[in-house]
Design a protein around this nucleic acid. Sequence first.
DNA 1: TTTGAAAAACTTATTAC
DNA 2: GTAATAAGTTTTTCAAA
Lengths: 173, 173
Amino acid sequence: MSLDARDVRILRSIAENDSTSPERIQEETNIPKSTVHYRIKNMKDRGVIKNDLFEIDFEKAGLGLTVISEVLAEFGEGYQEEVGKALAEIEGVNEVYFMMGDTDFIVISRLPSRDMVETLVEEFEAVDGIQRTSSKFVISSIKADESVGILRDYSEETLLNSHGLDETVEKIE
Amino acid sequence: MSLDARDVRILRSIAENDSTSPERIQEETNIPKSTVHYRIKNMKDRGVIKNDLFEIDFEKAGLGLTVISEVLAEFGEGYQEEVGKALAEIEGVNEVYFMMGDTDFIVISRLPSRDMVETLVEEFEAVDGIQRTSSKFVISSIKADESVGILRDYSEETLLNSHGLDETVEKIE
DNA sequence: TTTGAAAAACTTATTAC
DNA sequence: GTAATAAGTTTTTCAAA
């Protein structure tokens, strides 16, 4: 099944403190660390939590330039899949979204310097089936929540409702 | 200073195996785990690594709907900052990028269901200074690397060059 | 900065509720 | 599912190089 109030509380505690330590979570949530561990393991088994990661500062890691591109592809039977995969394999491409509406893609890339942008665009346009591309530089990343950190962007209520739980459930405790 | 060949090797080992375990990194890189730990701590101190996180499955966490929006704002003195911050505070908004070119923003939001999209768009348009918004649904996330995972998208050479290091440096070892 | 060895923390297993 | 405990691992700290 999906998440319950306790799972949500644990995930939010991780998101808000940027720490996955069971002991710290116990201190904040009053859920015993053995239970915290049981819950986290459970979420890992169900695939809700995929893996441990470090969040990095892209700029300090040498990838200070972010480019967002719109890629328009030719219409065709199941074509999107192939075009999308080809875009995903280009060096520097971190995200590829296949969008509703027109047959196009939004592509987010991070690069060390402007020199590489030209190469990137050339590689986009070399992909078979590409019709038109339009790339813009990001001046500043005003917000860039990732991974479990995105849970900070929701009220506890929203997260619970999304699993069909109302506040009654939360009040069990 | 920035990253050297050893830092890059450690970060890539983490990215490629989706694991931050010093012991595993030692096995893969032959760098002793206490040294691995020292390097990671060092990168944390310098802010290259920001924090420990879990990667989550957005869909399983109840946030299966991704929306990418383009927001056009009115021109104005330092206006962008305020508009950007206001957008960032809207529930469901995970990423806000201030773009070059026209005075606009790219906003990435994740939501539990379509019901909330209307609310989202209304909230966008209620922000002072907003001129026009255009939102599209993501049909599928073909690629969605995050955090340290994005380092998989680069050759070791590119990552080293971005810190002004050539292959000579790497051959020290 | 690099390590090996010691201390602390985390994970797993076991049990009882 | 929850939670306590104990045993086994792993991570983190620390002192020496």
